[in-house]
Write a protein that binds this DNA or RNA. Structure first.
Lengths: 124, 124
DNA sequence: CTAAAGTCTGACGCCGATGTGAGAGTCAAG
DNA sequence: CTTGACTCTCACATCGGCGTCAGACTTTAG
C-alpha cells in the first residue's frame, strides 16, 4: 500500500511515517516512481512504534529495540537481553522525571498555599 | 554587584541571568560602560526565579507573578488573586503531565515484563 | 487526454532554557 | 601603560517529533 493508506489505517500522519523512515524505524520498498510501497506488516510495526513513543522512548532507542518485536519470529532475538537493559534504563529515567515533577508540584502547592496570606516569604 | 558575582552567589550561569533579564524577570541598573549592576535583593529574586522554574513554570508566567513576591511589601499585590488562578492552572497541567508519564511508565513496564517470554505480541 | 488527487524531496518553523563563540569594549592590579 | 580577567551584544546551535509550505512529478478516474 502507499503512504496515504498506511496513514489512514494507523492514524499516523504522513509526515510522521516519513520521519520514522528517516529514523530507520521503517524501510518501505520503492516503486520506480519513487513512491513508497508498504506491506501489511507495517501496519503492526507502526502501531508498535506509536506504543513505544507513547511509552516515552526516543526514536533512536526504538530503532535499537524494534527488531526484537519484528516479524513472525516466535522468540525474540538474542540481542533482546540488551533490549531489556535499555528499556529498564529508560524506565529509570522516566521514574526520575516523575519524581522531579512530583516535587515540582508540591513546591507549586506550597507556593499556592502560601500566596493568599504571606506571599513575600515563599519557599526560597 | 556585577553579573559574575551574582552568578557565583546564586549558582546560575551568566547566560541565564541575561536571559532572565530579556524575559523581564530582572532589571539591573547599567553602568556608563554598559555593565549590569545588580543589588543585594536580586540574589533572592534569582533564587525565587529558580524555584519557580524548578516548579515547572515558564518564564512568561513567572514574569506575570513575580511582582507578587517582590521587595519588602508585607502583603501581596491585589493582582495576586489572578496569580493564584494562573498557578492553579499550571498545577493542573503538571498533574496531567504526571498522569501521562505514569501511564507511559506502566506501558513500559508491560513491555518489559512481556519481553523475556513472548516479545512478538506486545501491547499494541 | 485532462484534471484532480496523491506523492516526492528539501527545508524551515516550533517550543524553552541555555550553551557557545565571535568580536569588541572595560576594569583592576602590577 | 599593559595585561589578563571581566563584560558587552548579537546570534546561531541544541533537543524531538512533528507541522507545513514549495515546486515538481505520478497515478487514477472520467
Amino acid at each position: 500500500m502507499r503512504i496515504g493508506e498506511l496513514a489512514r489505517r494507523t492514524g499516523v500522519s504522513i509526515r510522521s511515517l516519513r520521519y520514522y523512515e528517516e529514523q530507520n524505524l521503517l524501510a518501505p520498498q520503492r516503486r520506480p516512481s519513487g513512491y513508497r510501497e508498504y506491506e501489511e506488516g507495517d501496519v503492526l510495526v507502526v502501531r508498535r512504534i506509536r506504543t513505544l513513543i507513547a511509552a516515552g522512548l526516543t526514536t533512536e532507542l526504538i530503532a535499537q529495540v524494534l527488531h526484537c518485536f519484528r516479524g513472525d519470529a516466535e522468540t525474540p532475538e538474542p540481542t533482546c537481553a540488551e533490549m531489556v537493559t535499555e528499556l529498564a534504563t529508560a524506565r529509570e529515567s522516566m521514574a526520575a522525571k516523575i519524581e522531579d515533577l512530583r516535587s515540582s508540584q508540591s513546591l507549586l502547592d506550597m507556593i499556592i498555599d502560601a500566596a493568599p496570606k504571606e506571599a513575600d516569604e515563599v519557599a526560597v
